[in-house]
Design a protein around this nucleic acid. Sequence first.
DNA 1: GCGACATTGTACCGGACGGTACAATGAGTC
DNA 2: GACTCATTGTACCGTCCGGTACAATGTCGC
Lengths: 189, 189
Amino acid sequence: MRRIAPDRDQLLGIVAEVFREHGYEGASLALIGAATGLGKGSLYHFFPGGKEEMARAVIAHIDGWFEDNVFAPLRDNADPQAGIEQMLEATDSYFRSGRRVCLVGAFALDESRDLFGGQIRDYFGRWITHLAEALARSGHRPGEACELAEETVAAIQGALTLARAANDLDVFSRALRRLRMRLGLPAKI
Amino acid sequence: MRRIAPDRDQLLGIVAEVFREHGYEGASLALIGAATGLGKGSLYHFFPGGKEEMARAVIAHIDGWFEDNVFAPLRDNADPQAGIEQMLEATDSYFRSGRRVCLVGAFALDESRDLFGGQIRDYFGRWITHLAEALARSGHRPGEACELAEETVAAIQGALTLARAANDLDVFSRALRRLRMRLGLPAKI
DNA sequence: GCGACATTGTACCGGACGGTACAATGAGTC
DNA sequence: GACTCATTGTACCGTCCGGTACAATGTCGC
């Protein structure tokens, strides 16, 4: 499906983790080098544009993962409810039940948004659009579906913030449970 | 109520804005100096502990504002519904209807959480606790009140993230409108 | 072995970083 | 004026920053 070389694929995963933990400004090349085991020579060989290109590639990588595992089910599953259920499961697994933070959401908050604004807007925009479309197919009125989709994505982002603030993973799983109810899915998968 | 010298009070407001826009790592002393008009000499005179003490003071300052304008109404207003309404209005005005980001939430996301974990946990913890208490007083069952309070604070945080990501203030006002409905308040203040 | 090219380590650059030292001001009291 | 003490500007420190240069390796096909 994606034809990125496998090593580059996992390389981007490691770099993503550094950005997630330290933010764009805080993720120094030294930290990235230590995490990946690569020297500056290699890093600049793979990403001639430096840190900014790394971040851009990482966002695109995440976007690709969501496209395959979150947006595609919402769009392609004949049963919209099943697609929404797949979305929630993929979301829970991606964010490791709240252990992980949303890198795109974190980038949206500080001034690094100015560098990646287009990618950030696109990521959340598609998430909400595809979810709203699935909700509409499952019986909600269009306007109501849009609001509910926006509310859902916001609830996920907020739960990630709160879970990390409270250092309590249950915050995230409670939020997902409420969302299941709110979206008309059977409780407890 | 608060007996901080007035100039220090507004100084903290300016420094807070720099942290909000650039994050803890991104807020350099040069930026803070430029924003406040103070040289390093003055900054280190007021905050001998440097950047970390500035951030700690800024969080405490924000916490104080929320204590006076958000938590107190929730706690002290005899009519819990009115207190909740006051909370939402104060929240809307504090975040400038979505133009502003939550500094404490932003700090929670990256590794600066490790420095300020206690203050961050306290801020959100008290927000949720006081809101849950007001909800319980207004008729919700205790467990349900806790969940609804957590859901509300998460929705606010998520809406701030999404509003900035989409660069669309309406995202935040829509979220507040939904919360009013969800919390049993009359629509449109 | 050979050449071509991808990959790597290392040394280095100028500049910005957080933080310190300290002398020079200012404002108030007596 | 003289003594205090808060406040400020400036020069400076060592370190780390993102980024560049480049020679040394690997690893292929031939």
